[in-house]
Amino acid sequence: MSILEVQNLSISFKKYSKGLRQEQNQVIHNLNVSINRGEIVAVVGSSGSGKSLLAHAILGILPGNATVTGNIFYEGQLLTEQRKEELRGTEIVIIPQSVKFLDPLMKIGSQVQTSVRKRNAVTAQKKIFEKYKLHPTVEKLFPFQLSGGMARRVLVSMAVVSEASVIIADEPTPGLDMEVIKEAENSFRELADNGSGVMIITHDIEFALKVADKIAVFYAGTTVETAPVSDFSGKGENLRHPYTKALWRALPQNEFIPIKGSQPLANDMPAGCPFAPRCEQATSECSEGLPEERYIRDGMVRCIYAT
């Protein structure tokens, strides 16, 4: 059974359009994703497309003008807003994008210690610092004094000491050099090996392919395909959705060939399949509604022509 399951999640925002009129802007539509214990799932999509909202919805920290529908289950139990608050920071933790999300006036050592729950906080913190090669002097530093690589290690070590069962990492890679990214890969794998479910939200498909077991491809507010990492190979013959195939082909190490057009804006969605306007295989049938999820070859796809 999956430790975390998101079913039919939709998120919309009230927003002022022209002058005084307010409109509902649906940013996420009928999104489904699930994570098992010991598994790393990467949600891959372009930045600014709203995929971070998925993390915020799971943690229950969306802003006041958001409306959420759909269900999220934790160990088979429905997550209510109250339950989210109880689990937040203990059973479900987020690894934020940067140290800007830490308390700027609290020393690193104490911040890491506050994440420990079951054991002696100080020894747990010292142990984890040793493991991640963080010098004991780092304890006495404030968040702004950390370098990029150090910051990443601190953020990951906070997630590790919390011993949470679900760990969500929001855009862990931008601005990091190869060495630190390599380190991050290892630490995520370790978290999963300890029995946690890890969700990585990223735009960086190369990183996702290196670290994850399963890739959920996010396009125009929904997951169009979920595929095991091994399907991303060769010319992408094993991939199911035309968008995923295009994404794979567009990588610089593959063909570097783009497709035309761009993702539709949240307030300007085409009827039916959101990818249809850019899709070569699209027919009139494609605009008859968001394609249902289909399960093909150990993966999920939202395309009526997928085989």
Binding site: S47, G48, G175, A246, L247, A250, P252, F256, P258
Partner: peptide, 17 residues
């Protein structure tokens, strides 16, 4: 300067082409 770092692969290829 990291012009396409934050973008998805298709947009990256599109812009660079």
């Amino acid at each position: 300067d990291e012009m396409t770092t934050m973008l998805d692969a298709i947009t990256q290829a599109q812009i660079w082409q």
